[in-house]
Nucleic acid binder design. Structure first.
Lengths: 362, 362
DNA sequence: AACAGTTTTGTGAACGATCACAATTTGGTA
DNA sequence: TACCAAATTGTGATCGTTCACAAAACTGTT
């Protein structure tokens, strides 16, 4: 193989180690056109003769040319980077508690797949929660990476300091779990409808005393879900609701569920606001000698991988995180390319029925 | 707020929209030094007068200057990017099977934390498995992103085409789960020792008939674990081993474990090569009316978040994925900075004892 | 055949940093 | 005080691409 050497443009006479691989100039030289014409082909400009375009495409293929992202950025064009912001404190906390983070896995899968399909890249960054450090952290990431679009996940999606900063800089922004859509791309799922669907599923199975274990009073999603749960109860003519206050964690949920089961009229079914609390329901049932689903049916919100292997496997509302992130990436890329703007996008949820509510199988 | 305008260096007279925020020139102008002196401060060059350095640091802080990564790369310096390669087929398969991927979550956490602590960035890319597309995919990613270091995860870590490509380009490379260390940074855990520890734990609890459900015959890790399991059995004077051939999945594992339990001398303990197969053991025990851990003890290899919530919670060998990736990032960054080179690094595993082997609690 | 308008192609400047090298300042010694 | 070496600072070139603008090559119409 021939060594990668190249002469500089200046008077410098010696051989120069080429710092990188094939450049746009190499392609241009191979075809006998200017670099700008090659650039036009790469960027899909319409004003290139078909015959020339073909020869350039062939040369790109033959030489294995791939544009240098940094140079493209420097040239004043796009960065072809979508930046996804996660909360630092929450990420580290989850980690230290060995709680895992299926959300991140789904983000990576959904976002990366969507971005790479269009030749883009997804980069993650951790940013602190509090307003001032958050703004600072995002500003640093923007300065350093110069992304063309930014995805804000909870809780950052509700932080006006970040949304404003992006608006000032003119960087399109997508918010996951936010449902406004005035100035940003808001991608969310129908929390209310999902809770209603879970409730209706239990009603259809004959349950009348259905409890809902909420994750957090101040978490918007929980409130919407409670509303859906209540609406479905009302629909079925069930007057009494049974809402327990949890905190998304196992221990509290165990206590709350235990209290409900010890009450005057214990529930025959429980909807938990996330998987960890649903597992608490299984443990509690086991501790009280209750059979699942015969004595207590359990439905969860989240559907992390482990619920398939619970004894019994859990019926759950699947949060379409990967789909939401993929959609957000696609919308952001479209905006950068001049098609489309801000808006609301509801991604469908899925009620996955498994044995914990009576259906056998899966 | 004053509009971000700037004049070009040429004869162009009109105001120019500044494409980005604060630049190194702004800092230099504010302090009254040249851009190169500011660059020296940013990059920790020793030859800057302390007084000047202080004034520059203050200006950087005051202006909120953060270097533009693309420009740094173009300047001929580093990219400050570590690229982590994952297998595309495996990632998509895991996704479609709704199997989740705690590995990715751990990579992201461990790698990002390590990188950002040193002002670096971690970028993920999916690359196909087969040798030719894999080389091509990596070459594209290298051309596009120009990372300063690359992390190969299984199965790419064992692909010589990729290792060679990186060697040709002079890009330092870390391999996770590989244990050679001659030319690359190899970071792995002691699979043999972990399997031995799991086995000894069961022996200490009085078990003599201990089965090992292997994941895959052609997977290097499984072979090492079987060796550790056998060594620990020999150590305890147990002649007969019980190795079942699984495929890391639930259904096969159920069948294999069922066959072992129906044998002449059924095991009283099972070590599964991953969590999914350990869950199969739990299900099988439940189906046969066996109590865990009294009639059948279960140990798993992997320790994904869900195992804490199994009934009963699973004792498991925790794979230190986050720590391995963090270590890989740190070693790669060190190499780029001229300190250190290739080598082997064993990251300690952990045996997390939970109720599935008899210990109460957790 | 000449013209105007459109399509296609090419050229120099710019992006924001680092590198290589040159110029200047500083400090110690004769 | 003068001089040399070391420490500190500055200048022009460069990386690979796109932008803005100019030039050239095609159209179709008169």
């Amino acid at each position: 193989m021939q060594p990668l050497v190249k002469r500089g443009a200046s008077g410098y006479a010696g051989p120069m180690i080429r710092r990188s691989g094939v450049t746009i100039e190499d392609v241009a030289a191979a075809v006998g056109v200017s670099r700008q014409t090659v650039s036009r082909v790469i960027n899909g400009s319409p004003n290139v003769k078909p015959a020339v375009r073909e020869r350039i495409d062939a040369a790109i293929e033959a030489l294995g040319y791939v544009p240098n992202l940094s140079a493209r950025r420097m040239g004043g064009g796009r960065s072809y980077v979508v930046l996804a912001i996660n909360d630092r404190a929450r990420t580290i906390e989850n980690w230290q508690a060995r709680r895992g983070n299926d959300y991140v896995d789904q983000m990576l899968f959904g976002g990366m797949t969507a971005c790479e399909a269009q030749g883009w890249h997804l980069v993650f960054e951790l940013v602190d929660t509090l307003a001032v450090p958050a703004r600072r952290g995002l500003a640093n990431a923007l300065a350093s990476l110069r992304p063309d679009g930014v995805i804000l996940t909870p809780p950052h999606c509700d932080n006006p300091a970040l949304v404003d900063l992006l608006a000032e800089r003119g960087i399109p922004c997508a918010r996951i779990g936010h449902r406004d859509g005035a100035d940003t791309v808001d991608v969310y799922m129908d929390e209310t409808g999902a809770a209603a669907a879970a409730t209706r599923h239990l009603v259809a199975l004959g349950h009348r005393r259905i409890a809902f274990i909420a994750g957090a009073a101040n978490y918007g999603g929980s409130a919407l879900r409670i509303a859906g749960y209540r609406a479905a109860l009302a629909e079925a003519g069930i007057a009494e609701d049974l809402v327990g206050d949890g905190d998304f964690h196992f221990e509290t949920a165990e206590r709350v569920i235990g209290a409900l089961l010890s009450g005057d009229a214990p529930p025959t079914a429980v909807i938990a606001d996330n998987d960890e609390m649903a597992f608490a329901a299984l443990h509690m049932a086991s501790a009280r000698g209750l059979r699942v689903p015969e004595d207590l049916a359990v439905v969860s919100f989240e559907d992390t991988p482990g619920v398939r292997f619970a004894v019994p496997p859990l019926t759950a509302i699947r949060q379409p995180v990967a789909e939401m992130i993929a959609h957000a990436c696609n919308r952001l890329i479209a905006i950068v390319e001049g098609k489309g703007g801000p808006g609301r996008h509801e991604i469908p949820f899925e009620l996955v029925c498994r044995a914990s509510t009576g259906r056998v199988g899966d």
